[in-house]
């Protein structure tokens, strides 16, 4: 059985810089790590392998700058078998449609998978759109918001977290599953794992080798464009009251009650 885990490299800190001219994130600026939810997805894959009687091969796929090899190596240290990195300037600036398209082209090339796992969303873009878009392009079913996954007879059984409760769904063929935090607790790498990762060769694939149409990848092919970025500004003309003494406190409370009455909530 073959499982693929999609791993995105994201900036570690929240203090991301944005390139004001292109509206894209400057990834080199911050220390990069595996997107946290992708660690949970990888852990689900490792557990599925441990629970399976058959041999399970776990591949990881990432699209990003060459430095993203480090997140693939980290995945190998945790137990993944092989890493693939899609890296080319031509991929840069891809929105979620182009990212999914590029990942889909790579999946068609590198292998056939019984299960594709991704994180529910990445901490940088926070769109959560890549998984479902990829599923649509590969014509696979998508199971989003997965809070648990297991193999039951010959089906993938997934518990999905919805607004009003949990639903359990099943599918027999290959599928794309988007993993939530509560699906697993990521393990730490072992010493042996780290050694294996150091020796491992990740496969790096560029645009030419991938054979993707330039009209399908990169900034210029992306349907969406960031046209401006700005700091949120919702400043208001506040009425200021000092309530540090008892008289001030009385006055402040009366004012709050007046607002409650005016808004019809008291």
């Amino acid at each position: 059985m073959n499982i693929l885990v999609l791993i995105k490299q994201v900036p570690e800190s929240q203090a991301t810089r944005m390139d004001e001219s292109t509206g894209t994130l400057v990834r080199e600026a911050a220390n990069s790590v595996i997107n946290p939810l992708d660690l949970h997805a990888l852990e689900c894959a490792l557990i599925l392998r441990e629970q399976s009687a058959a041999t399970v091969n776990i591949d990881c796929l990432s699209m990003g700058p060459l430095a993203a090899v480090s997140v693939l190596k980290e995945a190998i240290a945790l137990g993944a078998d092989q890493g693939y990195l899609l890296s080319d300037r031509k991929f840069a600036g891809s929105d979620t449609w182009c990212t999914a398209k590029t990942l889909a082209a790579a999946i068609a090339k590198i292998g056939s998978y019984d299960l594709i796992l991704c994180g529910e969303r990445a901490t940088d873009g926070e769109t959560g759109q890549t998984g479902p878009a990829l599923a649509a392009m590969l014509d696979l079913p998508v199971l989003t918001y997965a809070s648990a996954i297991k193999r039951s007879a010959d089906a993938w059984q997934v518990r999905r977290m919805l607004e009003d409760g949990y639903e359990t769904v099943e599918t027999t063929g290959p599928a794309v599953v988007c993993i939530l935090k509560e699906a697993s607790v990521p393990r730490l790498p072992t010493l042996a794992g780290k050694r294996r990762a150091r020796a491992a060769e990740c496969r790096i694939i560029n645009a030419e080798e991938l054979g993707i149409d330039p009209a399908d990848t990169g900034l210029n092919a992306s349907p969406t464009r960031v046209v401006s970025i700005f700091r949120p500004n919702h400043l208001k003309q506040s009425e200021r009251l000092s309530a540090l003494d008892p008289a001030g406190a009385e006055q402040a409370v009366d004012k709050i009650i007046a607002i409650f009455r005016q808004k019809g909530v008291l």
Partner: peptide, 17 residues
């Protein structure tokens, strides 16, 4: 958040989350 990106994937559409 599930059906919109699935449609966008199928029809090559831009989608903002």
């Amino acid at each position: 958040r599930t059906v919109m990106p699935y449609i966008a994937g199928k029809l090559r559409l831009g989608l903002t989350a």
